[in-house]
Design a protein around this nucleic acid. Structure first.
Lengths: 239, 239
DNA sequence: CGATGACTTGAGGGAATTCAACCGTCGTGG
DNA sequence: CCACGACGGTTGAATTCCCTCAAGTCATCG
């Protein structure tokens, strides 16, 4: 019984996309059987350990990525070390919308991450022949841009309290969207990651969360928080 | 002599795009003669007076726009009136990358503005038949997204001084890109607009500019500033 | 169990805001 | 022609929210 089904390379490699749990959420969601097979042919599956880098800002952008499992942080550094997290990538997210041939931000795995990796040339060739697919990528870019604009409002015009509340509510909604709608909101990223995402310090994040707990808006648990008063949190986030 | 050339509707209407000064910078830059004629056919030229609205956040997004003259501010409001300017649009800029059928931000004219306006349906139909054009829109979206991420760094991790310097340098470069590279940097937007773009108050913007002037980095003139020490400004912006 | 790293808590300080007054320019109408 | 109001911008003083610095706690892991 050495030869199992998963030991058959054809079976395994070419069934990957069809079996993919996040395909419908991803850019590849609209592809038909044939396109999907070709798409799979030009992709390479890669696993990354926590804190391993997917790519680094400034590097030649050789690959584009499609996240299939785990969470990644996307960030930019200033010369003196100050960091801004520009986003967290979840399963289904596409990291390949780039105007130049160099990465403009860095990305690394927060927990155990799986990605489909494509060479930029092969990917470009693939989309150029498939207008419908291009249209879908466009939608993803548009959504990404809208999120970025909302983040600008948050960074520029909201208080620390509002930032944290908005982050928790937004993160919960994104988790729900990919099917994870448990009671407790999983927060695989560190406090420092959250701080760098919200334009705050780690201390302010910590203090604000503790205060929210004192005020019975939530409970801090290992690896996340549990929202006791989602209504109040949503009100804070919207305000 | 009542009938002049410009009184001939055919001549006027169908020559517009070919004569357009910002076409090469715009999404329509890559279109050939035939496509351009069709593009022009589905467009409507609109002029806006200072402070007139192009569209408002929340409205049904019936049109997309292509700026041909003037400057527009793009912004989002919080329920309590706090405002975040998410960008300034210049000639050549495209306002139509939207994930939903409602505008996610508002746009209005800062000075005298000209736009090409397209119904969303006609525009969508046009691009769906022209993969090459879609690719160009993608590039614009990607560039827009990169700018948004840089703005996040600015809003989240830079000091007031750095914000102002980065804004001036970035604005100068954008003006130069559309052919306006005079000594003085034109600032058609108000101090309040700048403040709302940088996540500051109008007082801080004013104070910082005056300080820059005291320190001989620039001179404040009506309608703009003149950079005396672009090197220092660039250093501040990068730092 | 000690060490390490992530997180929390406290005290004090500072950058930017808030509140308030003032200045300059432009357009209007007496 | 100039007084005047409106508006955008500047300047000053006081305040505040968040940051910095520092110490302490907690969980995890060799």
């Amino acid at each position: 019984m050495i030869r199992t089904i998963s030991a058959n390379p054809n079976r395994v490699v070419f069934g990957r996309c069809t079996a993919c749990a996040v395909r419908s959420l991803s850019i590849c969601g609209g592809l038909d059987q044939d396109d999907l097979a070709e798409f799979e042919r030009i992709s390479r599956h890669v696993q990354l350990a926590p804190n391993e880098a997917l790519f680094t800002a400034g590097e030649a952008a050789r690959s584009v990525h499609n996240l299939t499992a785990g969470v990644a942080r996307l960030y930019k550094l200033l010369p003196d070390g100050r960091r801004q997290v520009v986003g967290f990538a979840l399963p289904g997210d596409f990291l390949g919308i780039m105007p130049s041939d160099r990465y403009s931000f860095s990305a690394d795995a927060i927990d155990q991450v799986s990605v489909c990796r494509f060479s930029r040339e092969a990917f470009t060739q693939f989309i150029e022949q498939r207008p419908h697919f291009l249209l879908r990528i466009n939608e993803f870019a548009a959504r990404e841009l809208m999120l970025a604009q909302e983040q600008m409002v948050l960074l520029g015009r909201r208080t620390a309290e509002e930032k944290i509340a908005a982050f928790l509510v937004g993160w919960r909604d994104r988790l729900a969207h990919i099917g994870d709608d448990r009671q407790t909101i999983a927060l695989p990223m560190s406090r420092q990651d959250i701080a760098d995402f919200l334009g705050l310090t780690i201390e302010t994040v910590s203090r604000t969360l503790t205060r929210f707990e004192r005020e019975k808006m939530l409970i801090i648990v290992t690896g996340g928080v549990r929202l006791l008063d989602p209504v109040r949190a949503a009100a804070m986030a919207a305000a």
